[in-house]
Design a protein around this nucleic acid. Structure first.
Lengths: 219, 219
DNA sequence: GTCTATAAACGGATAGAC
DNA sequence: GTCTATCCGTTTATAGAC
């Protein structure tokens, strides 16, 4: 009734366990899907009992929400906020390069996206929202590029279509890579990106080498 | 020892039930995935008991194989065998148009493809093989187009990359459509196809209206 | 008499509650 | 950490359809 109850909050070990659970759940969901992955698998992978998962998350759906939230935060953090206009799209190559080193990430995105095509899937609103945000950001940058004269005059509908096509190609080529890891997603997508931006610009463009962030900024 | 045993073979009702089970299984697997869909759901959808499924298929995996085999046969039957060279790629628009009327087909392809990114998935060999066959057919036609002078001189690696990109875009845009049914897959992909073929040809092309088979050949 | 479907039940795994 | 009700894929024994 009176004051809010004072709690000690989670211990550091608790937070670490929570992070481990989320990481493991991402792996399991990526491999077996949300429906196919079980809380027992995840618990066994972390090295705890299923009951421990219940302490950190309300239920399986709550764990999925935590996985999606964590994944979204990580991928957002990798988007350079300084990219504007056309240069934004060059940065997509960095995403492809990064994904090539993190197969689990691609599996999670594509497995959940396909699963979320079911209208009753719990992750559907999140996946839908995420796609719309990604598309909206791309539309924003391409519109900026058009207004700055970087590319030809495309109407708004054309811009939306172009951005959707770009991310469609990116998803599709990564799906092919999951099924056939020998294909070079970066080289193939770079080919597509070069052609696309050239078409937008109206003349052949050359994607600057620094579009790919260096392996590591050696201090 | 002597002759092979004489059996009566399946009745017509049995064959019909078998077809209904496959159709229903395709729906269920498309919606919930192979791992997430249950034989009980399928049986309930058909209106039989789970045991009836066991009479027609060895096990769940056998049912999946039957679904894939049936799906493959149907989609193959829709590919016009007369398409050669560049005209082959115009026919892809017909596939997009058809898929727009059969959401379950797209769900099945994409759900199983994503699920089959797991190396242990029972459908993985089939899905892998199917992709390779589709790509190989495309490579064949684009190579034919190059040798006939329909398009610029692309080397073999470029041809493979181009065909992979085309189908990547097709898959990706249909994935977006599953998550947001308001987008016009046909219009958007047509935009991509026009740009792609124009780039291949080296000059702007116009996709002939008859690339889309008429609604019905009115006799 | 073969084919088809059933009802009932199996061992096992599940999510969630206590 | 254990328990429970539920659902899973699969296997029986059995009744009916062709």
């Amino acid at each position: 009734m009176s004051g809010s109850p004072v709690t000690r909050g989670p211990y550091q070990n608790g937070l670490r366990t929570r992070r481990e659970i989320i990481a493991s759940a991402a792996r399991i969901f990526a491999t077996y899907g949300y429906a196919g992955g079980s809380l027992r698998q995840i618990a066994g992978d972390v090295g705890v009992t299923p009951a421990a998962l219940a302490r950190h998350f309300d239920n399986k759906e709550g764990l999925l929400a935590a996985v999606l939230e964590s994944w979204d935060r990580e991928t957002d953090a990798r988007i350079p906020p300084d990219a504007r206009g056309i240069s934004y799209f060059y940065r997509v190559l960095g995403t492809i390069a990064h994904n090539r080193e993190d197969r689990g990430l691609v599996e999670l995105l594509l497995t959940l996206s396909a699963e979320a095509s079911n209208v009753d899937h719990p992750a559907r609103p999140f996946i839908q929202d995420r796609y719309e945000r990604v598309i909206a950001r791309g539309v924003e940058c391409l519109t900026e590029a058009r207004d700055a004269g970087e590319v030809l005059r495309l109407d708004d509908a054309a811009i939306a279509a172009e951005v959707r096509l770009l991310y469609a190609t990116m998803d599709g080529i990564q799906l092919q890579w999951l099924l056939n890891p020998s294909i070079d997603t970066l080289a193939i997508f770079r080919r597509s990106l070069t052609a696309t931006v050239s078409r937008w610009a109206g003349y052949p463009v050359h994607i600057p080498p620094d579009a790919l962030p260096a392996a590591a900024p050696r201090e």
